[in-house]
Each structure stands twice: as C-alpha cells, then as structure tokens.
Write a protein that binds this DNA or RNA. Structure first.
Lengths: 333, 333
DNA sequence: ATGAAAGCGCTAACAG
DNA sequence: CTGTTAGCGCTTTCAT
C-alpha cells in the first residue's frame, strides 16, 4: 500500500504539498499538481480512511439507526435508506447501518466517532433512546417528530397536517362521513410518531369541521382486508376514506373493487403514501404524497450542517400537498 | 473527549496497560483492571475508532454493495441486509452501505480501508465489477454465483439445485406438465445469477425427467397477474407450478383462488422463496426455502475468515431442502 | 504483571 | 506557491 510519503518522494515534493493537492485547501501550481497526480496513478495510491479520520476528526460516515421490527414496512424503510444514501453520497459521506433496536451499539458507534452524526429512524413518543442521545457529543437527527425531543433536532414530513389536509380536501369535495384506515396496531401501540401525528390530524380536523369520523387500525398480515373493508362500509356507510397504511393499500384497493365500489362516485379516497405506492398501475390514487427523497435529503443536510457547525439549523417539518388523481371528485370553481 | 492517556494517568498506570486491559491481549492483575475500569467510567471514555483503525489496520466494518434498482424486491433486500447486520454484529463489525450501482465508490471505499471487506449483492453473469474487484487488496465476497468469478469467493443459495429439487419432488408426486413462473424480465435480462441458475435447474431437470416444461417471466408491476395465470392455465393445462418470484406470490395466489383452482388437487405448487414469503397466512405453500439468515451468516463468516487470514475458505453453495406444506400431494410409501 | 517508546498515515498550523 | 513539523489516539514490539 502506497502512502502519502511515497507519493511525495515519487513526485519530488513534500508530504504536505501532496496533502494540500488532494484536499484543495491551498493553491498548487499546475506543474506540481500534474506530477503528483501522475505519481498517484503510477503507485495507485488511496488515502487511508483511518489515518484521515484520526487526523481530521472526521469519519466521513453518517450512522443510520434503521428499524428492524417486522411491522415497519420493509419497502418504505428501503425507500428512506435509498434517499439517505443518495443525499449522503452527495455530501461525500457513507451510511453506516445500525440496528435501531440495539441502542447500546448505536450509542457506542456514535461515541467512538465511527460516524460523524447519527440519524434515527422510527422514533416513537417518549422514545427511551432520546435522553441518552441528547447527551451525545456528536450530532443526532431524528427522522420523526416526537413532542418532546430533549433538544435533539427533528426532521419529518408533517403527518399531522397531511391528514388534516386530506380531511379538508375531502370535506371541500362534499365528504361528510370519513373513515381513516391507519397503521398496524403494533405501530400504533408503540406510538410511532408518524402514526400518532397522522391520527391526531385526522381526529382534530374532522372535529373542527363537524364531520363524522372513525379511525380503524389495520393489520394487513393478520386481518382479512376484505372483511375489514366490508365492516368499514357496513357501519353507517362512509363517503370518504383516508388510507395511511402503505403495505395494505393494494389489498384495500382489491377489496374495494371486489365489493363493487367505484371511486370516486361511491367513495372518495385519499392515500397518505409515497408516490410509488399511490400509483397502483390499475388505479391512481389521489394522495397526500410522502416526499421520501426530500425528507431523506433534509435529514442528511441537517446532519452535515451540524457536523460542519453551521448555525441556524432547526427542526424541519415538511409541508404536505395534495395531488389530485382518480379517486376524488374534481373541485369546480 | 477523554483519551487513553487520560485513563492511564487517572488510574495511575501506563498507556499500554490500559490498551491491553481493553483488548485483553495480556494478563492484567485484578486490582489494576478495576482501577482502569473505574477511570473509564469516571471519565466516560470511549476508544477513538479512527485511531484504532490506523494503528490496527482494521476498520471494524464490512461494506455491503446493495442493489438499488427497482426490480429487486425491496423486501428481500431488507431481509438480507438484516441477516448481514446480525451476523456482522456478532463478529463485532458494522455494515457500511454502498450503492451497488456506484462501482467507483464501492472500489474506493474498499481501497481506502474504510471497510475490512466487501460483500456484493445482486451479482450478474459477466458482472463488469468482478475484474476490478478481483484486483482489490482487501477481501471481497460475492452474494451470488456467477460461473466465472475471477477468483473471488462466492456464497449463495444453490438456486439451480433448488428448482431441480422442486421439479423432482413434483415429479415424484405425479406432476408431468410443469410451468415455472420466474423473476421479472429486467432481472432475467440482467442475468442476475439467481434467476439464471434457477431457470437452468428447472429446464435441465425437466428435460432429464422427460417432463413437459414451460418457463414464463412475470412482471408483477406491469402484467395483470390474473391474465398471466389464466394464460398459464389455458395453454395445455399444467398440473404443477414452480414459482420463483417473491413479490408476485401473493398476487398469484389470489389469481389462482379467483380461477377456482384448489391446491394441490387441481394444481400442485412449489414456491422458491424465503419462509416468510411462502407462508401467506391464508395458505401455506410447499416451498424450497431460501435460508436468508444462513446465507447472510455464511457471507459474513467468509468475509471475516478472509479478514483474519484464515485458510480453508472456499466457495459456498448452500443446499436446498423442500418443506412440504399444503400445496403438494403428500408422498406415501 | 507492567512500562517505555516507536510508529500507523494523515491534517494543519507555522514558516518561509 | 512550497516545505517542516507537531500531533491525532491508538496498537504493539521491546524491555524489565
């Protein structure tokens, strides 16, 4: 393995010149730069990550505590992982995976400086990890929005406004009896912040608008979706549905079709889901889209801002917007 | 941040004693060990990952090149990621994620020693990455089984024997006209090694046994699964199905049900899929199970063996076995 | 059972 | 524009 001194010798310059040539932190004459690059190619040199980390106090990686629990939809997790990888890559960082459930390791990895910052997914209300993470010497960013964050920065989609928006838009389109099909019960009981906040937005807004509201929990794996849908339709026949359960959406769609329901005439539906999930191929759902890419980018940006010690970073609640598609009535002026 | 010298001073011992106390690489008297541990707690010391990496030439991480392409089932990828994380954790390693498509970064991360070894997922036949990876100074393990590996170690489930086994067992149970529903067409055209090998095992074995064989590709996202199933059933009515397409399995199941097919009486079915996928709740499929946990463990073990310079490591092809459940006829003696 | 000291390969003052 | 040098915080021979 060639080292930086090898390059220096080979190029006939000093060690620091090579270092600066690589970092670009000071001007290097065209000629020496070329000789250095030639030497680098000739010896196929690669800077040693460990040495750099020690000298610069930067690991060049961001930790990501991913939920490994089965109730969290793997597909959605992967979408977030992807978006974080992309964003981290742009910021010249790698993503180090940490099992979200293994909090001891999570804390250790951060404390040892194996990562420059930590992004925590799947935060729940009163998350036991927060008090400890609040003490960490390196930046932490929550991908979630607990009401009490212990001073840790939060980044998330505004799920509360998302379902509020869904309700308001359905109301404007004549809906009066709404049902929300929410996350699996495990997710609810854990009080994943996105589930809690989405439910709250639904309840509050229905109340404010004087709408009849019902919230049902759906365990895709366990319940027969057909039964659930029939039950939902049977009990004083709702005229609109808000669905916040990405893994169950296809099954719900099928069940509705089987019941002979046509949307939006019999029932208006708004999904709260990532774009890919809302587009079922067969049907295109009106949706409050979860902008996964944007959320991931925001989390990484916040993390790198904190790493670089930039000021003016704060919580970030990404505003929802509704994309009208086939499952709601058009709004006419 | 407390350093090791701080601990040494605080405990009244030398630097090296602290180091050895932590690594356990030489005997330390009970009393000094206690004083060191006390100091560590008091100053809440954590060894610096970068410094350790530099001095020991070990990063304590394994790189994982994950496929980010949409045609690779996110759920299955996550299952592998999970299993690799678990295995890596047992070996005191973290997993550093690398976008499989970004080969430049992959090679760089390995060359810089940011990881001690690299595991590559979703290998295809004649994978352009292999020649370069073969030159790497650090260990590489393929999670896949290309016919030409350029000397790189391969670890995979034996997909060829898996579908061969499925065919043989169906044959023993009286099946004579077989259809295999395989991976999406993008996967096939890329020649993902698992798809190629599974197809080959099916074809070869059917031929050997003189069975009528048909292989259809299924794009779950694009095709209507119902249509596909009807087409499959229409063309000289097969008596058995081999399904190797995890994301489509639920949809296929539904389509079969809708067609009024009852298994195994009308049609025997063997799935090649992870256990979780083969158990649909509604129905339990006879399956050649993809032992994700075992595969992940094998990959990590191979990687760590190579890191430690252990000898006797070689390619590993994990043998399949069939789990009889509800979709095949029982075999009676 | 413990210490002293020489690196590991870089970064970033400091000095011209 | 370039060079010299002092660390960064560990691991690991040598010694004793």
């Amino acid at each position: 393995m060639a080292t930086m001194s090898d390059i220096a010798r080979e190029a006939g310059v000093s060690l620091s010149t090579v270092s600066y040539a690589l970092s670009g932190k000071r001007a290097i004459s065209e000629t020496t730069r070329e000789r250095i690059n030639a030497a680098i190619t000739r010896l196929s040199y690669h800077p040693h990550a460990g040495a750099r980390a020690l000298a610069s106090q930067r690991a060049g990686a961001i930790g990501l505590a991913v939920p490994l629990a089965e109730d969290v939809d793997a597909h959605v997790v992967m979408m977030f992982v992807r978006s974080l990888m992309r964003a981290a890559h742009q910021a010249s960082h790698e993503i180090l995976l940490i099992a979200g459930e293994d909090h001891a390791t999570t804390a250790r990895v951060l404390a040892e400086g194996k990562v420059d910052a930590l992004v925590v997914m799947d935060v729940v209300e009163d998350d036991p990890r927060l008090p400890i993470l609040a003490e960490a010497v390196r930046p932490v960013v929550l991908l979630g929005y607990p009401s009490e964050a212990h001073g840790i920065l939060r980044v998330d989609f505004d799920f509360e406004q998302a379902s509020a928006l869904a309700v308001m838009e359905l109301h404007r389109r004549g809906a009066r009896r709404l049902v929300m099909i929410g996350s699996p019960s495990v997710t609810q009981t854990r009080h994943a912040t996105y589930a809690d906040r989405a439910t709250r937005g639904f309840r509050t807004t229905c109340e404010q608008l004087g709408l009849q509201a019902r919230h049902v929990v759906h365990d895709h794996e366990v319940d027969s979706t057909g039964q659930l849908v029939r039950a939902v339709l049977a009990q004083d026949r709702p005229d609109a549905l808000v669905i916040h359960n990405e893994s169950a959406l296809p099954a719900i769609h099928r069940a509705l079709t089987e019941e002979g329901i046509s949307m939006p005439s019999d029932l208006q539906v708004v999904a709260i889901a990532p774009r890919e999930t809302a587009l079922l191929g067969t049907a295109e759902y009106t949706a409050v889209e979860i902008p996964v890419e944007q959320i991931g980018r925001a989390a990484v940006t916040t993390a790198t801002d904190l790493i670089e010690g930039r000021s003016g970073v704060g919580d970030q609640l990404i505003a929802p917007s509704l994309i009208e598609r086939d499952t709601t009535h058009p709004l006419r002026p």
